[in-house]
Design a protein around this nucleic acid. Sequence first.
DNA 1: TAATTGTTTGACAAAATTGTTAAACAAAGG
DNA 2: CCTTTGTTTAACAATTTTGTCAAACAATTA
Lengths: 200, 200
Amino acid sequence: MSTKDSATEELIKETAKKIFFSEGRFNATTQEIADAAGVNRTLVHYYFRSRDLLFEKVWLEGHAEFKEKLMEEPKGDLSFKQKIERFIDVWMAHAQKYPYLDSYLAANMHAGELLDNVAKFRDDHEQRKKAFLQEIEREMKAGTIPEMDPMQFVLNLVSLISYPLAMRPLMERSLSLGKKKYEALMKERKQAILKVLFKD
Amino acid sequence: MSTKDSATEELIKETAKKIFFSEGRFNATTQEIADAAGVNRTLVHYYFRSRDLLFEKVWLEGHAEFKEKLMEEPKGDLSFKQKIERFIDVWMAHAQKYPYLDSYLAANMHAGELLDNVAKFRDDHEQRKKAFLQEIEREMKAGTIPEMDPMQFVLNLVSLISYPLAMRPLMERSLSLGKKKYEALMKERKQAILKVLFKD
DNA sequence: TAATTGTTTGACAAAATTGTTAAACAAAGG
DNA sequence: CCTTTGTTTAACAATTTTGTCAAACAATTA
């Protein structure tokens, strides 16, 4: 978004995002991407120099987009529970668009480079994270959620949200559920999560 | 295991498992695998014909091993909670050995072939699954766990176990935790999971 | 219209990876 | 000792994928 972003460049990027993170085809070749976008393969190199740079660019963009939405300061004051609800909503919406974004991250953590870039955000978010943890402790003391290490609460939260979406095809199969049934399950998901996180 | 399994063959397989599923380097070449095993690259082809066949073989083996341990009938009678505890223990142990096995599955579901093979197990497990779901419902009625769609309970269970292990490097970073601290967190993990699943 | 700039293309080169083959080697049995 | 069988190796071939380049093309601007 820094400058103009020719239509073709944008088209290639969007196509790549779709192939990589919606369809999960991480090993797609430049040829396949170019074909899917309906452009000459050389253009991929013209705009992004190399396949890896293209990948990195779209990955960072997708991830940044997600973080931004997630961290966006909500309008009015929200209760703790409302904040959690919003967190769930945003995350689930994103995971529905790019189901393979997180699983790529999981499967490629070892590379490490990706996370270094992500870390740029860190300073900004560090204090907000701290505030969030403190808020969790307050809630525990107030008795709205069970007492435990606040980190465990965070792990619970993201696990319950992300896993069923990232692992959706696996879960569908191993639970012998059809597409429809799983969708219905996801619709109820938010409430199911809230039910186990909060004492009620 | 069908026949003899020469030492070299076994060595290559074990090395491949480690590279693929412990280190998560799914794109490792035959050369890298051979190097890591300290054998000539041609041997990989001699024993497994092709890279893909090697991959499939070790994947199926790893997965089968896991399923077997998970489904193994426990000795005496266990209470529902004890069964869940055992489930957590087995899964966490396995995920510690091969943290990338599940995430590979997640990231490559679209291929679909893998799961077809896994499906062989299905008939055996189908009825046990049903029994498990019924047991969950009984527990809900008995009031030991919150009322919800039993499938949601299953999703909660596997999410809470698997995600923090599969996403470990990501979580370590985004929560700014050191290796030590995260390990400690995992030690407490079982109790944290039980705490949210059961009413107490 | 000529010139400049940016875009697109096909042809080509380079690199990386896989797969095959024939020959060397070693162990075991006759 | 010779033969057979299974194992290991190096050299080679084939394929796949990436990356480069010069020329064609289009749009805009002088």
